[in-house]
Amino acid sequence: AKPPKTVTVKVEVTNADGETQTRTVTLTNLPKDLKPGDTVTLPETGQTARIVEITP
C-alpha cells in the first residue's frame, strides 16, 4: 500500500474572537484539484480554514 500523500498548506483560520490567523498545517489525502482560496476542515480542530498557499 502506498503511504498517504501529505501536503503542507498555509491556511487562514478565523478564531472565536473573529481574528484571522495564518497557520501552516500538514494534511493528508487532499483532493487533487485543491487550490488556494478553497476551504478545508482542519481535522484536529474541526475549524474551517481557507487555503492561502499549497507547498507541493
Rank of each mutant, 00 (worst) to 15 (best):
R23L: 15
R50V: 14
D38C: 04
K32S: 15
K2H: 15
L42M: 06
T41L: 12
L42V: 05
E19H: 13
T24F: 06
R23H: 11
E44N: 08
T6V: 11
T48V: 15
E12P: 00
G37F: 02
R50N: 04
P3L: 10
T41C: 05
L34P: 09
P3C: 11
P36S: 05
N15T: 13
L27F: 04
E44R: 06
D17W: 12
A49C: 04
A1Y: 04
V25S: 01
G46E: 04
P3Y: 09
T26G: 05
E12Q: 13
Q21Y: 09
I51G: 00
T41H: 09
P4L: 04
K2T: 15
Q21G: 07
V13D: 01
L27E: 05
N15Q: 08
K32H: 15
T55F: 14
E12R: 07
V25W: 01
R23M: 14
K2W: 12
G46R: 04
T48A: 10
K10S: 06
K5M: 15
N15S: 11
T6M: 11
P43N: 06
V7E: 03
L34V: 12
A49Q: 00
I51K: 00
P31H: 13
E12Y: 03
T20L: 10
L30A: 15
P43I: 08
P43F: 04
T26I: 13
A1D: 15
G37E: 01
E53I: 04
T26A: 06
V40Q: 00
G37A: 01
V52W: 00
D17N: 13
V9I: 13
K5F: 15
V7H: 09
P31C: 14
V13L: 11
R23F: 14
D38W: 03
V13C: 05
E53D: 09
V13N: 01
G18A: 02
R50W: 02
K32L: 14
G18P: 01
D38K: 02
P43G: 07
L42W: 05
Q47I: 08
P36A: 08
N29M: 04
G37M: 02
E19T: 14
D33K: 05
P4T: 08
A49Y: 01
I51V: 14
N15D: 13
P43C: 09
N15M: 12
R50G: 01
V40N: 00
P31G: 15
T55K: 09
T14H: 07
G37Y: 02
Q21A: 10
V7M: 10
T8G: 03
T14S: 07
P31Y: 09
K10A: 04
K2E: 15
V11Q: 00
K5T: 15
D33Q: 06
E12V: 12
T8K: 09
P36E: 09
G18C: 03
G18K: 02
L42H: 03
T45V: 06
D17M: 13
E44A: 09
T39G: 03
T22E: 08
T39W: 14
A16I: 10
T14Y: 06
L27C: 12
L30P: 15
V25D: 03
V52D: 01
G18H: 03
K35F: 07
D38H: 04
T45N: 08
T41Q: 08
T39E: 10
R23K: 13
D17R: 12
T41W: 13
E44C: 10
E19L: 12
E19P: 03
V52E: 01
G37K: 01
